[in-house]
Design a protein around this nucleic acid. Structure first.
Length: 201
DNA sequence: CCCGTGATTTAT
DNA sequence: TAAATCACGGGG
């Protein structure tokens, strides 16, 4: 009998996963050094019907191919000529939904993160945005498509006791998708209420 | 407010 | 082939 895996957590709809990821830990290992942060802000991207999603209309290209993997894999993309953004794929294989990780509260390897992000003036600037956290943790396309349960370089550690109660979760419209018509205003951004580490206060 | 920056996508 | 776009961040 195969050992049970944690993949089931991620094989749910992206809104459920986006909420459940708040409070969980993202861990990055570089040359034996560990960097880690608590996820404090996420956005759900629903799939082909969601005009703001990279998989809108069933779009499937070399860039977004990993969105079609089963839940629990990473989708990392490069944009604006200089920034990377990291998503956690949600749902079943061939259902191209994902959760954008928008902000972390740094908890381990903070000195290392400061070196990676010279522009950050305060620790609340270290990981308070999707591009910032990728810079702080050196996440790039080399990590696109990896399994976040088993990979040695990057993983998500799930601990039930860290899950957020619903009354601690704030909900708002997603950021930076004004082009998406009616989808621009939908309440698909989730954050830990009161956290100074979220990207938009 | 504006602009850098270049891969990716979309239009011709 | 060429043009437009972009799930952003930093500086004024």
């Amino acid at each position: 009998m195969p050992a049970p895996t944690l993949h089931g957590f991620f094989r749910r709809d992206s809104v459920t996963v986006a909420r459940a990821l708040l409070g969980q830990k993202l861990v990055r290992v570089i040359d034996g050094q560990t960097l880690a942060g608590v996820i404090v802000e996420t956005e759900a991207y629903l799939g082909p019907r969601d005009r703001a999603a990279h998989s809108y209309g069933g779009r499937r290209t070399a860039r977004n191919e990993s969105m079609y993997l089963p839940g629990g894999h990473a989708y990392v993309y490069f944009t604006y000529g200089m920034h990377h953004c990291m998503n956690v794929v949600a749902g079943e294989a061939d259902d191209p939904a994902a959760v954008l990780i928008r902000a972390l509260e740094p908890i381990e390897g903070v000195e290392h993160m400061r070196m990676n992000r010279p522009a950050a003036r305060r620790d609340t600037d270290l990981c308070s945005g999707p591009g910032k956290l990728c810079q702080a943790m050196r996440i790039d396309r080399a990590l696109d498509g990896v399994d976040l349960v088993t990979d040695e370089r990057i993983r998500i550690e799930l601990v039930r006791s860290r899950a957020m109660r619903g009354d601690r979760i704030g909900v708002a419209a997603r950021v930076g998708i004004d082009y998406a018509g009616e989808w621009a205003g939908k309440p698909l951004r989730f954050f830990v209420r009161g956290s100074p580490h979220v990207s938009v206060r």
